[in-house]
């Protein structure tokens, strides 16, 4: 009992920094680091949106997360915003899926037409006058395009993305 009284109590700064039990704090910190590493590398990929091609849905320099597990059980659906890898995942394209494998896609005076039927795009807020001839998608091919189609189609990165290039679905 006397010995306990002689042991100096840790100061508030030390408690704030390493807790009452430094070993336990270290273990918790390590566990947190592992969980963060696994989560943000393999499950939810943090991204910074750059550029104007997804306006007004995603603003330039906004932050978002990509769910890498989204397409483990099913394929992307029309309207999904997906990230598409380039040579790796350091730089990716952020685009919306507008046509699915096997479908024929075209633009007529700004209107998206899939398999000959006009598709309503509620995410489209800016006017567009794109006219692009019909193209048929192969298996595992998705037609992706941005929400901002105010520029000429040749100045807008769009086209066919194969399934293996789609990294995941944008979360927010």
């Amino acid at each position: 009992m006397e010995q306990d009284q002689n042991v100096p109590k840790p100061g508030w700064l030390r408690i704030a920094l390493v807790g009452r039990n430094p070993k336990r704090t270290l273990f918790r910190a390590l566990m947190l680091a592992v969980v963060c590493l696994v989560t943000f590398k393999f499950i939810l990929l943090p991204i910074r949106v750059e550029g104007i091609s997804m306006l007004p849905t995603y603003k330039d320099r906004s932050f978002n997360l990509v769910n890498r597990l989204a397409y483990r059980l099913h394929h992307p659906a029309r309207g999904d915003v997906v990230s598409i890898r380039t040579a790796g995942i350091s730089l990716m394209y952020l685009k919306r899926v507008v046509a699915l494998p096997g479908e024929t896609v075209e633009f007529r005076g700004g209107q998206l037409v899939v398999d000959g039927t006009p598709v309503i795009e509620p995410w489209l807020k800016f006017p567009s006058n794109w006219t692009l001839p019909p193209r048929r998608l192969g298996p595992d091919e998705f037609y992706v395009v941005g929400d901002n189609r105010t520029m000429p189609p040749m100045n807008h990165t769009q086209g066919v993305a194969s399934l293996d290039r789609i990294v995941g679905k944008v979360l927010l």
Binding site: I84, K95, T104, P134, R135, R136, V160, A161
Partner: peptide, 29 residues
């Protein structure tokens, strides 16, 4: 981009550079 290198006289040189299309544009039907 895809760079092709070749070993020439013990050193590595670029022999070809090609652009790779991330999103391919389909030919019209």
């Amino acid at each position: 981009l895809r760079f092709t290198f070749q070993k020439i006289e013990g050193d590595w040189f670029i022999v070809r550079v090609q652009t790779i299309k991330t999103l391919t544009l389909l030919l019209p039907l």
